[in-house]
Structure formats: structure tokens, C-alpha cells
Design a protein around this nucleic acid. Structure first.
Lengths: 339, 339
DNA sequence: ACAATATGTGTAAGCGCTTACAATCGATTC
DNA sequence: GAATCGATTGTAAGCGCTTACACATATTGT
């Protein structure tokens, strides 16, 4: 039962096929360097023996893993799940594998995970957002690990990145809200501390406020983790404030979903009693009742581009570009005109 | 810029600290075997040099990776995301890492991924469902890889597994549906072929049908992939059938969400015009309008138990148990009594 | 005081691959 | 026909770590 299982190695294959280990290795990695006849024999042996190359031995000898690491805040958030899926598919198409870690939005965990992925020989890294200690960037630079930052964009970016301008996007939505006659805005934001996306979105609203002659400091804001229940609680709290807001802008669709569901429980009608907006345009946004006005973000495209750029960097075809993606407003019934 | 970066190795640490490589290794793995004084000096050197152990070298030498592999159908499905999160957290608490692959419900991809994870030295494997070729189980057995199957349960199980009885669960819900006066049931099922969960759920409904004196072969069923849009389309199609169903039972909550949203578009009221049920009880179920009657499944608990059992197996404390989890019905407004 | 036993450390043999370099051989060139 | 060359194949040196085993000291019991 628990004998040490017999696991064929490359040496076994070489011996059985009557060639050197180098030849077997070449059959696996550089087919054209082996004569058709030999290759056929070796391949048959590999098959007969049920040989699978040992990944670690390979990584050590070749100093390449064809593996890309990604560290995301959480897998439970649909937007990352979706972008990551596209990222993975693109990698796969180019023969790369994906290694994922999630850090529950904890920066200190991220550092640890970066080290772990590097120790595992990731050829490149995908990180979310821009905000992290300079020492992290230095470390990556020193180890020569190509890195792409996703879900983030800044005009002054010095690192390879792909994303959109969270601040500008939310400001655009806020401008739209103003143009529809709203003046009493309240906000359910993600935790801005250490999260440049959440921070940017919040800032976008404040900028719009200023531009329209309001004092951004009087903006009612509740910051909370991205969970439905939190959105619900925050909604209820904000509706207690006086004067009551005419619109509640949410940091993402999940918070907005919570807000809508709580509104219903409180017997409030959306958008007649209060308008609600989201951010991300996940599938859910369109099946909520009422459908949610939100900022549409091309998550899949972002994943695809990030993967492509990372591969280019790993294969020395690029030294890192900054890609800005465009977002748009998905106007739906949850936001209504105020007379 | 692109000099080969200097990466300190264990040898470097040993040299600088003035000890042997064995001692450094011991500091990292078996602290108690090293004198406090030496250890302190070594640790300082490690810190000074910014040394990180090379994972692959470690794996090769020790033949242990402290890594558990998991292969799930998709990360885009909230139920797996959630269970996996719990799985991961439990592993992490015991010092194990998680390596995830997703196979988009393609069995042939699963085989490939199992080999890849084994080649990467996974100490154990988490697989979803029971249905796969015997040769896969043989392979795992031969290589001595502890494996736990999750999201599945059978009384006659011969492999370690944790899950619930999909058939019995859905049958319980169908019985309930009957008890509320429904007789004209239609079903939007996941693709049953190669997916024992989907197949079991469908079978559960058919069993209930038989038990209540109906011919299970006349049951209108549409099988489709688990996507909102597919649920919507299937709903519309099923509502064309004559006689019209009084309830549409869905293979999971996502399909049900699609059905509800399409109903709304068609001007149909749920549950007055037709009742709808789901399966899984994801967060969404409770914020749908109307809230969805569904089968509540303890996904997190399943993830936790699977992780614990896998660790026990890897560490030879168990040879694999079969755990059955209980599910319950979450009664909400989408299912109503028929007079 | 001496053997027996702990304790701390070093030596060196792998783990299973890749790849630089060398070797072989028939084909091509002049 | 000797020199040259390209195509195949083999030899063997690592890659960075763990760990069995050997060795030197320190501790203990009698």
C-alpha cells in the first residue's frame, strides 16, 4: 500500500530508450534538434513508462518556469475573478501557467506573497493597484522580475500598468449625477486607506463636488469593506442623515446591491425615494431591481492586455508600457432625473 | 539594468555567517537543533543578505512542498470561490499553500491539470465531484497522492470525500414543491453529462416526480451552462410549453437569477405567475426580487473540512474518510403555495 | 576518572533536470 | 582526397537545497 511509489525519471526514459538524458531532454524541449527516428522511439518510451517531467528539477536547471504569479485582493469578488479568468486564458494560449494568491486586502500579506511567488520562480508578476512600499518595487527590480500593475492607471505612472483612471471615472459619473439635478450626494465607499482604487473613486466625487461649487468636506461618506451586508447597513445609516441625500453613490456594485436590497426592506423605492449608483458593471448590476446605473469597466480586456504585456516583458519584447483603458457609464433605472 | 541579478543562496548565507550549509538549513527547518547563539547570527545574515530560500531546490531535496493543489470547474462561480477561500484559509493556518487550476468544466483538461499539479509536487489534491475515469484514480493511487473529493457525496463512496447528497437535497426541495400544491414542474438544469452534481439534482426531481405518481419522462428539462443569460433564455423557452409550468426549478442560483430577471422583462410576476427555485444559496439569492427559495449549502464548512481532512491524509493521520454534510431549504418568496 | 550519552556542527551525496561543450559521422567543397 | 561543415548525439557540470552520517565537545552517571 505505502511502498514508496515508483516514479519514472528522465534517466529511466533514457536508459530504456537507449539514448542519453540530453537527447530525451531535447525531445521534450527542442524537438527539431533530434532526428525523427530517435524522437519517435523516445516518445514511445515516455508514453510506455508514463513519464512526467519533474517541474522543480526543470525549473532549477532551466531557471525558467513559464509561470506567472498574480496577487489579488480576493477571489470572492467577481471583478477580479473575471479579469483573472481572461488573464489566465491569455497566458495559457502562450504556454504560461498562472499561480494565484489572494491577500484579503492586507498589504503586509502581499509582501509575503510576492516573496513566495518569486521563490517559486515566477517569471513575472501581476499586482493590483499602484500603492505599495518603494522597497517592494526595489526588490522586484533587483531580482529582475517583470511586473505589471492592473486595475490602476496614473498619468505619472513609472511602472508598467494597465487600467483606467478611477478618479476620472467616478468624477464623470458624479458630473452626470449633478447634471440630472442631484445636489445632495452621499457615498458608500470601499476602505480608501491602502487602496488607491477606492481612494481615487472617492476623490473623483469630491472633485466633482468642488467643481460644482460645493464643499467636498461636507460630503457624507461611509467607508466599509466590499460586502453586500455592509452596503445595506451603510445605506440605512446614510438615510438617517439630514437633509436626506437624493442619491447614494457606491464604491462598487456589491455595495450598491446591498443598498438596494436594504432600501426594499425599509419600504423605500429606488429611484423615486433615492437614486443609487455603483461601479464595475458586474453581471449582477443588470439583474438588480431596478437595474443599476454604474461605471462599466472592461475587466476581461484588462486581464487580456495585462497578460500580453507581461509575456512581452518576460520575453524581452517590451520593457513595460502604461496602458489606459476607457470606461463608460451604463445608465439604468437606479439613477433618475430630479426636477 | 539587465545584469543577471545577484540572488543570495544558502551557500552565501553559510559563508558570510561562517557556518556550514547544513546549519543554515537547520535554522530554517529545525530550529531546535541549532544553538541559540548560532541561530541568531545566521538569522541576522539571512536578513542582511535578503535571502529567500529557493522553493524548487527545497522541493527537490525534501520531496515535500507543503502545497496542496485544487482543481475546480471555474473561479467565476461564487460557490467555488467561497468554498475555496475557506479551504485556503484552513490550509494556510496549517502552513500549507494552495495551487489552483480551473478547467471550465472540461474533464480532459482536468486530467492534464492533475498531472501538472503532481509534477509540481502537490502533497495532496482537492478535486470536485466523483465522476472521472478509473485511470485517474489509479494514477493518483500509484503516485501515492492523497486526494479528497469535494462537493459530492455517495453512500457507496470508496474515495475520501466531503459533500452532500445532491440528489437527496434536490428531491427534498421537489417534495416541498409538491407539498405546496405544484404539479406542473419544469427544470433548468446544468449540463448533467460528466457533472455528477448536476445529474444528481436532476435525478432528485425525477425521483420525487415518480414518488408522487407522475411520469418522470414527461418532465420538461433544459440543460445549459451555469450562466445568468442561459437561465434567462431557458426560462423564456420553458414558459412557451403547454401546459405552462407552475414552478421552474433551477439547477443553481445563477440560473434562477437569470430566470427571474427574464420574467421581469416579460412582464411576469414571480411567484404569482410562476414560482422559481434555485440551489446553493449564494448571497445573491437573498437580494433577488423576490428573494429566492433555494437549497442552502454550507460551502465554507465544506472547504474547511476538506482542507482539514487533506492535511490529515498528507500527514498520515488519516487514510481518508467520507463526510456527509447536511443541507437545508431556505424558504423565500419566489416559491408560493398553490391552492 | 571514564564510559556512555547528548548536543551542536560539518561533510558530502544526492534530488531530476538543462545545456555548454565535445565527439562522431556522412556529406559537401575545392 | 583532404579539409570543412552541419546534423546528431553524448558527457558531465551544475541549479540550490536537505539530510544521513561522521565528528567533536559537553554533560551525565557511577
Amino acid at each position: 500500500m505505502s511502498d514508496p511509489p515508483y516514479i519514472p525519471t528522465l534517466d529511466d526514459v533514457a536508459r530504456v530508450a537507449g539514448v542519453s538524458t540530453a537527447t530525451v531532454s531535447r525531445c521534450l524541449n527542442e524537438q527539431q534538434k533530434v532526428s525523427a527516428q530517435t524522437r519517435k522511439r523516445v516518445m514511445k518510451t515516455i508514453d510506455d513508462l508514463g513519464y512526467t517531467p519533474n517541474f522543480h528539477a526543470r525549473a532549477m536547471a532551466a531557471k525558467r518556469t513559464h509561470t506567472i504569479g498574480a496577487i489579488i485582493p480576493t477571489m470572492e469578488n467577481a471583478i477580479f475573478a473575471r479579469g483573472l479568468q481572461a488573464f489566465q486564458e491569455t497566458l495559457h494560449a502562450s504556454g504560461y501557467n498562472l499561480l494565484v494568491s489572494s491577500n484579503a486586502y492586507l498589504p503586509e500579506l502581499e509582501v509575503e506573497q510576492i516573496r513566495a511567488l518569486v521563490a517559486r520562480g515566477a517569471d513575472g508578476l501581476l499586482l493590483i493597484g499602484y500603492e505599495r512600499g518603494q522597497e517592494v518595487y526595489d526588490y522586484l527590480e533587483r531580482r529582475g522580475i517583470p511586473t505589471v500593475l492592473a486595475w490602476t492607471f496614473r498619468p505619472d505612472a513609472v511602472h508598467a500598468s494597465v487600467g483606467f483612471d478611477n478618479c476620472a471615472a467616478m468624477r464623470m459619473l458624479a458630473d452626470r449625477v449633478f447634471s440630472m439635478g442631484h445636489t445632495r450626494i452621499a457615498v458608500i465607499s470601499g476602505i480608501a486607506e491602502g487602496n488607491d482604487r477606492a481612494e481615487g473613486r472617492l476623490r473623483g466625487i469630491r472633485e466633482s463636488l468642488s467643481a460644482h461649487g460645493y464643499d467636498p468636506d461636507t460630503l457624507p461618506v461611509i467607508q466599509t469593506a466590499y460586502e453586500i451586508e455592509n452596503g445595506a447597513a451603510a445605506f440605512e445609516a446614510l438615510m438617517q442623515t439630514h437633509p436626506k441625500p437624493t442619491v447614494i453613490m457606491c464604491g462598487n456594485d456589491v455595495l450598491a446591491a446591498g443598498a438596494i436590497s436594504r432600501a426594499k426592506k425599509l419600504g423605500l423605492n429606488i429611484p423615486d425615494d433615492v437614486s443609487i449608483t455603483g461601479f464595475d458593471d458586474i453581471e449582477l448590476a443588470n439583474i438588480l431591481q431596478p437595474p443599476l446605473t454604474t461605471v462599466h469597466v472592461p475587466h476581461r480586456q484588462m486581464g487580456r492586455i495585462a497578460a500580453q504585456e507581461l509575456i512581452n516583458m518576460v520575453e524581452k519584447r517590451s520593457t513595460g508600457v502604461v496602458r489606459k483603458l476607457e470606461v463608460s457609464i451604463a445608465m439604468r433605472e437606479s439613477l433618475k432625473q430630479i426636477s
